[in-house]
Design a protein around this nucleic acid. Structure first.
Length: 646
RNA sequence: GCCUCCUUAGCUCAGUGGUAGAGCAGCUCACUCGUAAUGAGCAGGUCGUGGGUUCAACUCCCAUGGGAGGCUCCA
């Protein structure tokens, strides 16, 4: 008999050789049907693997990442089995579970191409195979046997993977006619894979190396219930509707023109207006928080970037240098603002009494991103950073961090991102050569970040070894309305540039000291921030920010004059108000303006003109009743005050 | 950059080896209207660009521009 301990502390006894699935079954068949993997003595295992000896067992239901992982990993194998049946001789790379579903990288073989039209066929085959309820069988093999098996099959990708593995740790999983090299864990059989969708195709380099072969990556997702798949597909559809590129065009916020150049955004009047409003708001907040605004040119002498080290690091991947009629004179488009800011710091001598210096700029930078990397406003070749640099003494780091975290929290709240997390990136303690700066300073900085985050109650994860070579950092991730994560703000400590630019200040000891530099951005870039804002709000922006706050809808052209009176009144009070003067029925005007996401629709007709009122309709919510223009104005002002406190 | 796919009117999309269609948007006219699409008419495209095959190309082939998804979340 063996003793099994459960997470709640209870203990049950079983015969030798029992597996997790059978244990779950003994508790209740309902539980057994709900679980997909088990953690046995802290190790993630197949349900069908026997439990040896006394053990603690924790079952994983669907909501656990471990369960989804096993489920999707087995689904990847199921897809591979289908692919092998459909395309004999196909070769397999890797096929992992991912955050949403799974993929398999395959090489269909010379001259064979898998296209979108094939996806439904693969899906059908998977359904057919899943219905066979084949058991998924694990086996441990020697390195040699594994090598022989996949060599015989001619699968050079698997043999390459095996050659990197330790003998004695290699396991295979087989279901039906398909055997795969795999660590597991897996489902006991394919019967629980009920809802299957093969989603898309993509190219992916073998082992992520662009010098190696391009594999065909097939993405899919599966669920134990059809309803869950339906919900997932609905979520994808919702994400598609919120796509900032689509909404950006519909609401006339921004555009791209191949003639201007790919990745170079054109801000249309409404989008430019919104962007400027964000900049104005941020500028006001920064000034209140002890920042000084600076402004620097869009180009800089190549020597500037040689000094900063950016030329060496990014020069080859960037826009080409700009030459002038003057022999030997070379400029570059500015890829970042920091070198310019360092030179501003260097213009005057500094005393410890002035520190910290907080220098901010909405600086437009230019980076030659690879054409395939470009994406809407989130990945562009010219963008405006809400950049700032703090120059401070090492002992001021923690306070500076706290002030920035505070600012980030404030701005995110106003922008409507109520849920966010932060990642602290520290250096790899075993690889000191990789980093610049003294151990003492690194320890100080890392301690400052960790303590500041703790004191500001940030939810953080710590990533060891993820720091930049020049310093540790703190990155912020927001979660949007449909659960997607976006990286927005970043705070980075830098010991590199102060050294390269010879920055210094005079301390209380009358000695020269090197300041520490902090790079930080809250929005990240105006482009990216607007994109995330669009996707988060689906174009229903906060009223303080939205391009048009109200639109007046006259019932007929007879009331256009009264509409002008009301619109003049509201515009005088800075309520951004339009009139829909088109000769259309009121239903049509309402529909069109609802689709434009204008927060308030003011219907006016004979009754309103006689009473001197407006009939207020809130976007997406419907009729709010009749009120005087003054009352409506106060209502909007009140709402803005709630949003941004002004 | 690389892989797969897409590229037809301002937008969303049909379409066929015999030189183009719809809806919406736009314009004009009528209606002067009460909370998510009034009706009629008009106009709008050398089918992304450049080659090739063909009696004939929007359609087939090649090149090129642009767009979409993706390019380790590791056996």
């Amino acid at each position: 008999m063996i003793r099994i301990t459960f997470p709640d502390g209870s203990v049950r006894e079983y015969n030798q050789g029992i597996n997790s699935h059978e244990i779950a079954m003994s508790i209740s068949p309902g539980l057994a049907a709900d679980i997909y993997a088990a953690t046995v003595n802290g190790e993630l295992r197949d349900l069908s693997q026997p439990v040896e000896g006394n053990a603690t067992v924790r079952f994983h239901k669907w909501d656990d990442a471990e369960a989804k992982h096993a489920f999707w990993h087995s689904s990847a194998h199921l897809m591979a089995e289908a692919l092998e049946a459909l395309y004999p001789g196909i070769k397999f790379g890797i096929g992992p579970a991912i955050e949403n579903g799974f993929y398999y990288d395959v090489d269909p073989g010379e001259g064979r191409v898998i296209t979108d039209a094939d996806l439904p066929l693969i899906e059908e085959k998977m359904k057919e195979l899943a219905a066979r309820k084949s058991p998924i069988i694990r086996s441990e093999v020697s390195k040699k046997d594994a090598m022989d098996l996949f060599t015989a099959k001619g699968d050079e990708y698997k043999t390459e993977l095996i050659s990197d593995l330790e003998d004695g740790t290699i396991t295979l999983y087989r279901q039906g006619n398909f055997t795969d090299l795999c660590r597991g864990p897996h489902l006991p059989d394919t019967s629980s894979i009920k809802a299957i969708k093969v989603l898309s195709l993509a190219g992916a380099y073998w082992r992520g190396d662009e010098k190696r072969k391009m594999m065909t990556r097939i993405y899919g997702i599966t669920f134990p219930k059809q309803k869950m798949l339906d919900e997932y597909m609905a979520m994808l559809e919702e994400a598609r509707k919120r796509d900032h590129r689509r909404i950006g065009r519909e609401l006339e916020l921004f555009a791209f023109s191949p003639k201007v150049g790919m990745g170079l955004p054109l801000w249309l009047p409404k989008g430019a207006d919104m962007k400027q409003r964000l900049i104005d708001f941020m500028t006001k907040v920064l000034k209140e928080r002890g920042y000084t605004m600076v402004s620097t040119p869009h180009i800089g002498n190549v020597d500037l970037y040689k000094t900063s080290g950016h030329y060496e690091k990014y020069g080859a991947d960037s826009f080409r240098p700009i030459t002038t009629p003057q022999e030997g004179e070379v400029f570059m488009l500015k890829p970042m603002n920091c070198p310019h800011h360092c030179e501003i710091f260097n213009v005057t001598p500094h005393s410890y009494r002035e520190l910290p210096v907080r220098m901010a700029e909405f600086g437009t930078v230019y980076r030659y991103e690879q054409s395939g990397e470009l994406h809407g406003l989130t990945r562009v070749r010219s963008f405006t950073q809400d950049d700032a640099h703090h120059f401070c003494a090492p002992e001021q780091l923690k306070e500076e961090f706290k002030s920035i975290i505070d600012l980030v929290q404030y701005i995110f709240k106003i922008a409507g991102f109520n849920e966010f997390t932060a990642q602290i990136s520290l250096r790899d303690p075993n690889n000191h050569e990789k980093y610049i700066g003294t151990d003492e300073n690194w320890e100080k900085a890392e301690k400052a970040i960790i303590e500041a985050s703790g004191e500001k109650n940030l939810i953080t994860t710590i990533a060891v070894g993820e720091a930049a070579f020049y310093g540790p950092k703190l990155d912020f991730m927001v979660r949007d309305a449909i659960g997607r994560k976006w990286q927005l703000g970043t705070i980075q400590v830098d010991y590199n540039l102060p050294e390269r630019f010879g920055l210094e200040y005079t301390g209380s000891d009358n000695q020269k000291h090197q300041p520490v530099m902090i790079h930080r951005a809250i929005f990240g870039s105006m482009e990216r921030f607007v994109a995330v804002l669009i996707e988060n709000t689906a174009g229903r922006f906060p009223i303080w920010l939205t391009p048009d706050q109200a639109v007046i809808l006259p019932i007929s052209e007879k009331f256009n004059d009264y509409a002008k009176t009301v619109s003049n009144f509201l515009n005088n009070y800075d309520i951004r108000t339009l009139i829909d003067e088109r000769n259309e029925k009121i239903g049509k005007k309402i529909r069109d303006n609802e689709l434009k996401r204008i927060p308030y629709l003011l219907v006016i007709g004979e009754k309103e003109e006689l009473a001197g009122t407006v009939s207020v309709r809130k976007q997406g919510e419907g009729d709010r009743g009749v009120m005087k223009p003054e009352e409506f104005m106060s209502l909007v002002k009140e709402e803005i005050k709630k949003e941004i406190g002004i």
